[in-house]
Design a protein around this nucleic acid. Structure first.
Lengths: 148, 148
DNA sequence: AACATATATTTGTATATACAATTGTTGTTA
DNA sequence: TAACAACAATTGTATATACAAATATATGTT
């Protein structure tokens, strides 16, 4: 990570600012790696996460607000995201019979098959991203992240 | 940071996945805090960064590719970003006389004045974001980030 | 000079994201 | 039961982001 290139922008960067900038640079790199890995499947990280959440439901349907609450980055726009998955044939959507305000979403057989392949791609991305970090360092990071 | 809420999505999350998800959650929180702080000034984080870069030039104009290279998150779309700043009267833009392919961008007096106010807002955001981290922990984080 | 190549920016298009307003449904209560 | 609040999803709008294609200018080669 070449923080200096960005940071030279101003003369002296206090530690706090440096940390934030550094954080964002790493985040950009992570996102790039992940989207590169997912690209062959024509799916975005958000869409991938929704599929994972649906699989985690074990057949039990999820409604939109559940999805939104569990997503890593909220997008307030889950409707349109699910639209895309629907077009790809990865999910089913139907209004909940007991409460017609709710929409029930489930993952399809095809969605599950694709997701298995994407899992592997995602795992590769994670390995690539974290290749220089030891188990101990990962634990350290998680402890530090908890303080945010 | 409530990682568990998002993480319960699947039964067992390996440390690597957990780290990535945790990272993104913190990133979301950081972005939210910053944009809340900048909101009164009607400026996005990207636009703020461009202004900071321009100030760092000390009057020397910057062209678009310089800006793009120094920005924390690249956007390949610096033209339109500068358009917005132009509309607000925070920057000047003129084609470089010696190389007419280039566009020279400088910060205006008004831009500088606004930027000073935004600096304070940004500093407040940083304090808020990092309030639970000690100096030592910030240093630790930066060391870990370098490994990405 | 004519041509190809490299550089710098702009434009077009598609998707992602944030936020506010709207629609439709359910539950409550005067 | 009519009115209203609460809830769940959708739609509209603006901006952000990514990527490819197009435009304009400069440089190097024959």
């Amino acid at each position: 990570m070449d923080v200096e290139k960005v940071i030279k922008t101003e003369k002296e960067i206090p530690l706090k600012s440096r940390t934030i900038i550094h954080f964002m640079l790493v985040n950009t790199k992570i996102k790039e790696t992940i989207s590169t890995q997912l690209k062959p499947y024509g799916i975005s990280l958000q869409q991938f996460n929704v599929l994972r959440i649906l699989r985690g439901q074990n057949g039990k349907p999820a409604n939109l607000s559940t999805l939104n609450g569990r997503m890593v980055t909220k997008m307030s726009n889950t409707t349109r995201l699910v639209d895309k998955l629907l077009l790809k044939g990865y999910v089913n959507r139907q209004t909940c019979p007991s409460n017609r305000r709710k929409i029930e979403i489930t993952i399809t057989e095809q969605g599950n098959r694709q997701l298995e392949k994407m899992d592997k791609a995602m795992k590769d991305a994670e390995v690539k991203i974290l290749e220089n970090l030891s188990h101990k360092e990962l634990e350290q990071l998680n402890i530090l992240f908890d303080k945010f």
